[in-house]
Design a protein around this nucleic acid. Structure first.
Lengths: 129, 129
DNA sequence: CTTGACCTTCCAGTCACTGGAAGCCTTATG
DNA sequence: CATAAGGCTTCCAGTGACTGGAAGGTCAAG
């Protein structure tokens, strides 16, 4: 399987697959012509990576998860810890973004949004409160 | 006012202030010795930038907002549009992160997290559902 | 045999900083 | 007045996770 087939099969862009190889996340075989060759195992790995990335895991988290996935003797506690820490990060981000959203929503509602120059959004950004 | 005083007064790191100058976001004066010199206006601009950045506006948004702030004839509608678009982005991010959070929370709860190798988190990442 | 699609590598750019090195300037102390 | 510490300058490089593009090799069809 060539790289474009692999990209199609996994929804991971060819560019990204090459990047994953460059950072030693995956190691596809090579044909005599120098083309990358993807086996079912590689496709599984890419699918795994795509799912983990979609859940917001960092590349380094993905590297760990992939290693644990391939280690038949792993303890599920190791995986759980990575997931738990990531979950906490996500919850923090949501809290930060929610605070921003509340402030912005209030500002947008307060702002007339017309041709007049008076604007509560700018007032808030520049006031010394 | 030297750069470290400005940094202290605005909670914007000196490194970041230099970066803001480099990308033409602010234009502090220069003393005879080549040192940057910050007036009250520059301090206000930096404070404005810090607030806008804290609300998650991109640098380019900040550039626009700063220009609008300094334009006495601006229409508040221009500002409101930038804020509204940013608000929508934030809401999208929150929705994405919330979906991740729900999935992860479920996985973490399902995972025993002990010494056994069976792990629903990895199963989910690798299954073909 | 040529065309066009695919593959390769390498370089550069993204965003918003951040760290560090090399070297000039200022201030305090002996 | 010399020196040492600290602040200031510029420039270069790195972060994370790709993404775009150029230059050139390979392959299948007509």
């Amino acid at each position: 399987m060539n790289i474009s087939q692999a990209a199609l099969a996994t929804n991971v862009p060819a560019k990204t697959i090459r990047y994953y190889e460059e950072i030693n996340l995956i190691a596809p075989d090579r044909g005599l012509n120098g083309y990358r060759s993807f086996s079912d195992t590689h496709i599984h790995q890419l699918t795994f990576l795509a799912r983990a990335r979609a859940l917001g895991f960092s590349i380094e988290d993905c590297r760990s998860l992939l290693a644990l996935w391939e280690d038949r003797h792993r303890a599920s506690g190791d995986v759980r810890q990575i997931a738990q820490e990531h979950l906490t990060e996500i919850e923090t981000k949501i809290a930060d973004l929610s605070a921003m959203r509340d402030t912005l929503r209030h500002l947008v509602q307060t702002c007339a949004g017309d041709q007049r120059p008076d604007c509560p959004i700018l007032n808030t950004l520049s006031s010394s409160d």
